[in-house]
Amino acid sequence: MLIPSGRPVIILLFLTALLFCPLTRQLSQASPQLTESQAKAVFVYNTIRYVTWPKTVFKLEDAIEVGVLTKASNDDSWDILKNKSILGRKVIVRKSSDIDDLRSCQIIYIDTTARKDFVRSLHAIRQESILTISDIDNFHMYEGGMITLKVVNSRLNFTVNLATARKSALDISSHLLKLAHEVLR
């Protein structure tokens, strides 16, 4: 018989094939590159260095909570921030389609997939000291919108509405503002 028969053999072969998957992937590893959504996640992570929150907003002593309002539950771009910490705080990423789940966060990123009705989401958190970031067009022009991210010629740029951030008792350092495409004061 040319082909070995019987279910166990097939299952075994199948499992072997799966085992090899990660191996073949490592062999073909090329120079690292960031996708658009990963770059946005890294940007959000970096802002933590340059923003000062009122002391009382941290619900957890040793962590900073980053909320991602998204309807794309299968988006794994934010996994790039898994097990990261910054300024002595562990970064916890919370993803949800419900703004109510994210109230405890210090940063909320609103994904374009959640753009429908985002004005109401912003309205819902207007009284909290939460840094709001989004890649929705002209996000910083809406009430409660602080930083708009945009990709121009495959490069990330951002606009800051400093007045809105200050209204929520957030202080953004001049270093971040210097890198901004535009700052509304």
Partner: peptide, 29 residues
């Protein structure tokens, strides 16, 4: 591109980095 540590990428370099866009990535249902 999973080996990148974002902590090693300061904001300045991030803004200079060329990013790729994958169609399905952040597509919602």
């Amino acid at each position: 591109a999973e080996e990148i540590d974002p902590a090693t990428l300061p904001l300045e370099s991030l803004m200079d980095l060329k990013v790729t866009s994958v169609s399905k990535k952040s597509q919602s249902l």
